[in-house]
């Protein structure tokens, strides 16, 4: 923890999934807190529970045991509507495979979260153009995802996650499909946005390029926190 106000509190988190006739335990008693404006990463090998933890923090999944509080919301007790409301208003997602809406233009993809929030047209236009400027894609606003490179697609995904200026952005392996140059470009963009907008960015990654940018690293191993290190301070 960096000593800032806590926006994520996790206490004794256990997550089990049914598997065949038995169960698979993905997370085994995780206890963590994250503060506002952190640039942190869940690091570990495949199957260590990074994505599962990210999904629970993002209210896409619920804990089997334990307690997770995100921005004042207890994840395990939220109704589907309340969880959707939390995601809509306060959480941005960035995915490994971008998950852009293929038939929509770059502009429409970035505009989508604002449509859900019912912002008016001129407000949407201004916010979308700001977000595209952050990621350097103003000239591609009319392009569709199939016409973009992988790096450009991920920059659109970042713009989509940041456009509503959420307090929390969750990025699951955001550079896994990108080359080194694009990865660094993306990470620099995210770092800048973290500084300028004070958005908490939480990564799930095992990419060394990402690890190099993180200010805090939580090593997960077999569903447990192995190490929690503050590696770099501004």
């Amino acid at each position: 923890m960096n000593g800032t106000s806590e926006i994520i509190q996790i206490q004794g988190l256990v997550k089990r999934f049914p598997m065949g006739k038995g169960e698979f335990t993905a997370l085994r008693g995780i206890t963590l807190t994250f503060g506002k404006g952190e640039f942190a990463g869940l690091v570990g090998p495949s199957g260590s529970g990074k994505t599962t933890l990210l999904n629970i923090i993002g209210s896409l999944d619920v804990p089997t045991e334990g307690w997770v509080n995100v921005l004042g919301n207890s994840i395990g007790t939220l109704s589907a509507k309340e969880a959707a409301q939390l995601r809509k208003e306060s959480i941005g997602f960035i995915f490994q495979s971008y998950n852009l809406l293929q038939v929509h233009t770059v502009y429409e993809n970035v505009e989508f979260p604002l449509l859900l929030l019912k912002h008016n047209g001129s407000q949407r236009r201004r916010m979308v153009m700001d977000a595209l400027e952050w990621v350097g894609l103003v000239d591609k606003e009319k392009s569709k995802p199939p016409q973009l490179s992988g790096g450009e697609c991920q920059r659109v995904a970042i713009a989509r996650a940041m456009v509503k200026r959420p307090p929390l952005v969750l990025a699951d392996e955001p550079t896994a499909n990108l080359d080194a140059a694009n990865s660094h470009h993306i990470l620099k963009t995210m770092e800048t946005l973290n500084r300028e907008l004070h958005t908490t960015l939480l990564f799930a990654t095992h990419d060394d390029k990402v690890i190099g940018y993180l200010r805090r690293m939580i090593y997960l191993l077999d569903g447990r926190v192995d190490r929690d290190e503050t590696v770099r301070k501004d």
């Binding site: 997602f93 495979s97 979260p113 859900l116």
Partner: peptide, 16 residues
């Protein structure tokens, strides 16, 4: 399915 998951991640309920 990815698109459906994306809608949910962006703030839609499954019913929506």
């Amino acid at each position: 399915q990815k698109e459906i998951g994306t809608y949910i991640a962006l703030g839609y309920t499954r019913k929506e």
